[in-house]
Every structure is written in structure tokens, then in C-alpha cells.
Design a protein around this nucleic acid. Sequence first.
DNA 1: CTAATACTTGACTAAATTGCTCGGTTTATC
DNA 2: GATAAACCGAGCAATTTAGTCAAGTATTAG
Lengths: 157, 157
Amino acid sequence: MRLSTKGRYAVTAMMDLAIHETKGPVTLADISDCQDISLSYLEQLFSKLRRKNLVRGVRGPGGGYQLARPATEITIAAIIAAVDEKVDSTCSEGKEPCGQDQECLTHELWCGLSRQIYSFLDSITLAAFLSRPSVQAVIRRQERDHHRPGIPPVTVA
Amino acid sequence: MRLSTKGRYAVTAMMDLAIHETKGPVTLADISDCQDISLSYLEQLFSKLRRKNLVRGVRGPGGGYQLARPATEITIAAIIAAVDEKVDSTCSEGKEPCGQDQECLTHELWCGLSRQIYSFLDSITLAAFLSRPSVQAVIRRQERDHHRPGIPPVTVA
DNA sequence: CTAATACTTGACTAAATTGCTCGGTTTATC
DNA sequence: GATAAACCGAGCAATTTAGTCAAGTATTAG
């Protein structure tokens, strides 16, 4: 499990999709404009997200991206893992049979911690996060003030 | 809050210190050997850890590093933050007054999540982690099998 | 059909980060 | 004073991040 700006981009973009879920697909160009990320970079990230079945692309005019599954079934951990896609040689899948015992010790300790972090992030779904009152407040405030009017609040099933 | 191999090195090294707390200081050379990290890189990391008052260096022969505070008062978040020391321009301390509203939205959403991750890692102290039964089992197994004999199990106050 | 829209792919690049080598300086112990 | 360790800093190679550019392919409105 790693956390970097890459993961942040992916997560915020997915939040964007979730927020506008009820309207049609969201184009990468929109996200690129709003969040100030280059289009091509987004394309790379979404290519990975699509391969992991987290988003679905809709081609042709009026197309864009949608969540491939309900927001209740997409966890933060899944999003981050999708774009990081480390073979995770650090944990599980030991490369060498662990020569030094000491190395093995700290290795195992870190893995324990790593698993804990992962399951924490895996316990947070997009829907759950977006339905938090403080988050909803932010979303509504933004909605009232600006373009893309009339977007209904995210309704979590 | 970022998570990378750098943070992993720092955390595992701190675990090492905590485990051998009752014996004297641990030298970086020891850690370097055991965990297969270069000495100079460790020095850089420990320089940061020392500046954040997480470890104390003991110079001269027989010297090394010790925890500067009891393991019960050192959290995983503190360790990672010490070595990453991002000015964290992403969160808090807004750089620009946030031109686009949309940008501001996702920005705030991410910050909410980021805070959650941080407080999670901040809730785990070195002592708490090392006292977990599964972790103790790993430590004891390693102890029985190998060098540095007779190291007593970590006792959490 | 045609053209516009939008996704897809790949090659390539600049900047940042990671991890390391090397050389030195202090400080404390024997 | 020799030695073992922490400290310090410049600099470098490899990797990752983030991005550009260019040439596609698929879909659908008209």
C-alpha cells in the first residue's frame, strides 16, 4: 500500500465521477479542466482504473466515464491499488526465501502494519465517504455557488 | 500524509530500536546489515528523526541510537511525517485562495480523507503495535532461533 | 456515410524522489 | 591516541512521477 499524489488524483477523480453519477458520463476533459491535471495523464490513470473494472468508458459524442460499479462497492484501497499496481514485492509473495532472520523479522512486522493500513482504507467506500455530513456540506456549497447547476446530492442506496 | 519505502525504512528501523530498547543503543551499522539499507541513507533518515526528537544519538564507541521518548508516545504517523516532511502544500495552508470552485471541492474532499488516514496512523503507537500477540510471536520466534540471544520481549509499560 | 467526439496506445521527456557513494568532522571510550 | 561511533554535506545514478505529443480506434449524431 502506497500513498502518493498519483493515488490522490485517482481518488479525487473517482469522487468526481461518484458525485455526478446521476448525470451522464463525465469526460476526462472536464476533470482535466476542473482539477488541473493533464488530460493524457488522466487517460493513463483511467486506463488502469478501467482494467481493474472500477470505471466504464462510454464512447462517442456525449460519452465519458462512469463508475463501473455502485459507489457502495468501491473502496479507497481498491482505487489506490489500481493505479499503484506494485507487484508488492515487499509483502506477501516473498521474492527470496528471506536470507537473514532479522530481515525477515522487520519484514513481517511491516507487513502486519501494512495489512492494517490496507484494511482501513478498504473499509472506506466512495459512497460512505461522500455521504458524510461534512462532505455533503462541502458538495452542496459548491453546487449552490457554481456551474453545473442542479446536480442532486449523492444518494447512497 | 504519504506512504512510501522511505516511510517503511523509518518505521522498521524504529521498531528495531524499540525491540532492543532494554539493551544499549543500536548502531546504524547493525540496522544497515540486518535490513540491507545503506548506512548513509540511514544516517539521512535518522538525522530527520533526531531533529523531530524521535530518537537520541549516543556518540563514541558503544554508542548508537535510542528512542528519545517511550515507545508508548511514538506514533507511526509521527515517524512517517518526520522523514517525509512535506510542507504538505496539498492540504491545509492553501497556497492559492483556490481559483476554481471545483478544484476547491475535490481539494477539500481529499483533505478530509487525508486527515482520516493520518489520525488512523496517529492512533497506533510503536508500543501498541509491538505488543500485539501476533507480533510478539514473530519476535520471539526470531529470538529463539538466532544471534543476539537473550533479548527480553518488549515490555510495554 | 461522414464527421465529431472521445477513448486508446505508445514513445518520449522533464522534474522530483529515492537511495547510494564518498569524504570528511566531531565525540566519547579504551 | 587509536578506535568506534554519531554527525554533516556535496554530488550522483536509478527510479518514479507527471506530463507532452502523435497517431490511432470506436461510437454515434446528423
